[in-house]
Design a protein around this nucleic acid. Structure first.
Length: 474
RNA sequence: GCGCUCGUAGCUCAGCUGGAUAGAGCAGCGGAUUUCUAAUCCGCGGGUCGUAGGUUCGAGUCCUACCGGGCGUGCCA
C-alpha cells in the first residue's frame, strides 16, 4: 500500500525529554505524542528512525534535591509516589532557601560534591534517576511510546569542556564579560542571530544547554551519521535552536545532516496565560490519562451496557487515550491551545471516536459475513465504484500515501488526522447509501467487501500512525 | 526596541506548492431507522478571513505598514 522511498534516510527524532525528579505534566504530552507520531510516519515511509529521549538529569536543581533527600525524605511517600515526593522535597528546600541563605549555600555545596563525584551524592542522584525512569516508563507504556535510546544530559558531561575548547580554538567562540560566547557576524548569519549571541560557558565555568546540545549533536553525528535530526520541542526554544544549528554549521561545515526544529505552541489556561490549575499546579499526565480512560469507560457503558465489564474497560481505555492523542495531533501544531478537559476528552464530532466507530462498523460487516452459511471468495474481486458514495470512498483511499508524505515533509500530523476524518466520513456516507451484505448482486457484494476491507486496513494503519489502537467493537 | 508566531462562523479550530460559490466540529433548529452498530446520515441558519495598501489573470494563502494576543530576546533549560 505504501511505496518505499527512493533514498531511505537515517532520521534521529529527539522528543519528550522529561526532567528527572519532576512528575510529567500536560506540557510534556505534545512533544511526546507529536514526536512519536512523526517517528511512526517516517518509519512507514521506509526511513530508518532512531527515537532518542534526552532526559533532563543534570543541573542546578540537584543541589536542592540532595539537601531535601538527606534531611526531609519521607520514605513511605517515596514508596507510594516517588516523583510526587521528589517534587515536594524540591519545593520545600526551594522555599527554605528563600528564607535562609545558609540553605542555599548548603545546596550549592551538595551540587559541587555531586559534580565532583562524591559517592554518596552520586548514589542518591542515581536513585532519583532510577525512580523517575520507572514512572516515565509507566507513562510511555500506557501511551504506547517507544524509545530506541535514552541518554540524559549527564551522559555528555565529560565532553562539554572539549566542545568549548575546540570552539575557542577555531575562533568561533570568544571571551566576553567573563563568559564564553559565540557571536554571529558572518554574511550567512541572519539579523536575528547577529543581535543574539549564544553563551557556551558561563562566567562561573559551568556549561549551559547550548553546550550540552552541541555535545549531543556531535555524539549523534558520530554514532548514527543521520541524514536528518528532528527536535520536537515547544516554540519558546526557537532562538535556541537557530543558534545551535548556526554554531554547528560553523563548527562542522562538512556535516550534511539536515537539522530541523519542529516546534509547537503552548498549552494555555482559560485566562490565556501558561497553563496552571486553580491551585497553581499543572495537571499531572497520569491524572489526565486516568480521567480519559474513566470517561471512555462511562461512554461505552452507556452505549453498550450488555458488554462484560473487562471489555468495556478495554474499549474505554482505547477510546480515552485515543481522544487525548487525536485532540493533541489534530490542530496545527504551531497554534497555542487553551487546555480544557472537555475539549481534550471530547467523544463526539471530529474526534478519534468517530474514526474508531467507522472501523468497528467495517469489522461488524465481516463478523456477519463469517456467520453466513455460504462462504464467499471476495478478496480478488474487482472494485467497481458505481454509486457516488462508492466513488468518493475509492478516491479518498487513493489519497493516503500523498497525505503521509505531506505529514513527513511538513512534520504536520494534523494532515493525517484531517485525512482520516474525511476517509471515515466517506465510509459513513457509503455505509448509509450502500448495503454491503445485502447488495443487489454477488459481484457488487464482492466489490463492496473489498472496498470495506481496504478502508478498514487504511483506517487501522492511519490510526496506528497516530499512536491510536483500534477495537473491533465498541 | 528587535525577533518569532497567531488573528477565519456565537464557541473551538482546519485550510500543502497562491486557483473556481472560504470548510469542519460544537452549540441552535428541522428531518432520516421493519435493512450490515443512529457513537451514523441529510438539511437550515450563521463569516467585510484583524485593518490598510501592494504583487498577480487570480490572495485566507505572497510582500509592506499598522492594530491586538502569546512567546523570546548574554550567565534557567
Amino acid at each position: 500500500m505504501i511505496s518505499s522511498p527512493a533514498q531511505p534516510q537515517k532520521i534521529v527524532v529527539d522528543f519528550s525529554s522529561p526532567n528527572v525528579a519532576k512528575p510529567m505534566h500536560v506540557g510534556h504530552i505534545r512533544s511526546t505524542i507529536l514526536g512519536d507520531c512523526l517517528a511512526r510516519v517516517f518509519r512507514i515511509l521506509g526511513h530508518d528512525v532512531v527515537c532518542d529521549n534526552h532526559i533532563g538529569d543534570w543541573g542546578t536543581q540537584f543541589g536542592k534535591l540532595l539537601v531535601g533527600w538527606k534531611k526531609h525524605l519521607d520514605e513511605s511517600a517515596l514508596e507510594r509516589d516517588p516523583l510526587a515526593e521528589m517534587e515536594r522535597l524540591y519545593k520545600k528546600v526551594d522555599q527554605l532557601s528563600r528564607d535562609d541563605e545558609s540553605v542555599l549555600q548548603e545546596a550549592r555545596a551538595e551540587l559541587v560534591q555531586l559534580q565532583g563525584g562524591d559517592p554518596e551524592n552520586l548514589k542518591i542522584w542515581q536513585e532519583m534517576i532510577r525512580q523517575s525512569q520507572r514512572q516515565f516508563d509507566s507513562v510511555y507504556g500506557r501511551l504506547g511510546v517507544h524509545f530506541d535510546e535514552t541518554l540524559g544530559e549527564s551522559f555528555y558531561n565529560d565532553r562539554l569542556k572539549s566542545v568549548v575548547d575546540r570552539l575557542l580554538e577555531q575562533g568561533i567562540g570568544r571571551e566576553s564579560d567573563g563568559a564564553k560566547m559565540v557571536f554571529f557576524e558572518g554574511a550567512e548569519d541572519s539579523d536575528e542571530l547577529k543581535a543574539h549571541p549564544a553563551m557556551i560557558l558561563k562566567s562561573d565555568g559551568a556549561a549551559n544547554y547550548t553546550t550540552t546540545d552541541l555535545a549531543t549533536l556531535e555524539y549523534r553525528m558520530e554514532r548514527w551519521s543521520p541524514d536528518q535530526i528532528v527536535y520536537v520541542t515547544d516554540g519558546r526554544q526557537q532562538l535556541h535552536f537557530k543558534q545551535l544549528f548556526a554554531i554547528f554549521r560553523k563548527w562542522k561545515p562538512e556535516a550534511k545532516a539536515q537539522l530541523d526544529h519542529v516546534w509547537f505552541g503552548s498549552i494555555l489556561g482559560e485566562d490565556g496565560k501558561p497553563f496552571k490549575t486553580r491551585s497553581g499546579e499543572t495537571i499531572k499526565l497520569v491524572d489526565l490519562l486516568d480521567e480519559a480512560e474513566e470517561r471512555g469507560f462511562r461512554v461505552v457503558t452507556e452505549k453498550n451496557p450488555e458488554l462484560p465489564e473487562d471489555q468495556r474497560r478495554e474499549i474505554g481505555r482505547i477510546i480515552g487515550l485515543g481522544a487525548i492523542k487525536y485532540a493533541d495531533l489534530s490542530p496545527n501544531r504551531q497554534s497555542d491551545y487553551v487546555f480544557s478537559w472537555d475539549k481534550m476528552l471530547a467523544l463526539t464530532g471530529n474526534t478519534a471516536v468517530y474514526l474508531l466507530y467507522a472501523y468497528t462498523r467495517i469489522q461488524s460487516i465481516f463478523r456477519k459475513l463469517e456467520a453466513e452459511t455460504v462462504p464467499l471468495e471476495w478478496s480478488a474481486a474487482n472494485i467497481r465504484l458505481e454509486k457516488p458514495t462508492e466513488l468518493a470512498l475509492g478516491k479518498a483511499l487513493l489519497q493516503y500515501e500523498f497525505n503521509l508524505n505531506a505529514v513527513a515533509d511538513e512534520r504536520r500530523p494534523n494532515y493525517l488526522c484531517s485525512y482520516l476524518y474525511d476517509l471515515a466520513g466517506a465510509l459513513s456516507k457509503f455505509y448509509d447509501e450502500c448495503s454491503v451484505l445485502h447488495a443487489d448482486d454477488i459481484e457488487t457484494k464482492k466489490s463492496r467487501l473489498a472496498l470495506c476491507d481496504l478502508t478498514g486496513r487504511t483506517l487501522k494503519s492511519g490510526l496506528n500512525l497516530l499512536g491510536i489502537e483500534t477495537t473491533d467493537r465498541m
